[in-house]
Amino acid sequence: MSALTFTLKTELKQRVDCSPLTPDRLAGKSAAEIAEIEVQSGNRKLRADAVFAIAGDDASQLVFKQSTGKLDFIGKGMTTGSITVEGDAGSYVGMQMKNAVLHVTGSVDAYAACEMKSGELMIDGNAGDFLGAALPGNQKGLQGGIIIVKGNASDRCGDHMRRGVILIEGNAGAYLGSRMTAGTIAVLGKVGPLPGYAMKRGTLLLLNQPTLSATFNDCGSHTLGFLPLLLKSWQHYPTRFAGLAVNRVRRYAGDLAGNGKGEILVAV
């Protein structure tokens, strides 16, 4: 069996909702049934085979080829299997995903892995705003699993994040980990203004000293016993974090405008 492959046929004028094309929803379907699945594009519904050239038969492994930033909701709610996106992906990639693996070789737009429950999301390029966040109005962002971004992440990464790990090899934008309830975000590059804004609990692990809000207080430099365990848990992922050796950190507690139980750890 070969991976079920969706190759984008034409340049899209409207965005396409790819949420019907997941391993869960395609399991057991014949090629003809898959071809006639309707996907929303703008205000119209299109047959899948009108948008994609479809090949292969293994619905547990999906591949989107020649993908662009107009393909939204790739892997939405998937609970099994894997999806590889060759190229960019649009918004909401991996939204509410659970126990599945999603790999994007390009960049993704806003709300990637929003409200994701568990599993792995790898982004080789950059991520847009609200990576691993909650949808507007909701209060549970990323709830488990791991997100690895090899490029940069934009603003409000980890907004309302509740559990899980986000690893950013590049830089992060403003309000990193805003309103987060728990979990860990680590950044190898620089971070934008006001990291940890209104965070309740959780950990931001940074390699470079950020400019902190006045509502984060310095708790001094420490050797923390949990760091070796945390770093060891990343060793088997294909990321620069696998070789990270951080022994001592400076601990900043905040956001003291709220309950102040979060922390920003900066490697020293």
Partner: peptide
């Protein structure tokens, strides 16, 4: 006393309890 921190690492839950010599993990 409320300053403890939970960390879930590789599927296991750990507690970081602040104590006078640092943290009890």
């Amino acid at each position: 006393d409320g300053f403890q921190i939970s960390k879930r690492i590789a599927g296991k839950r750990y507690w970081r309890v602040p104590v006078m010599d640092g943290e009890f993990l």
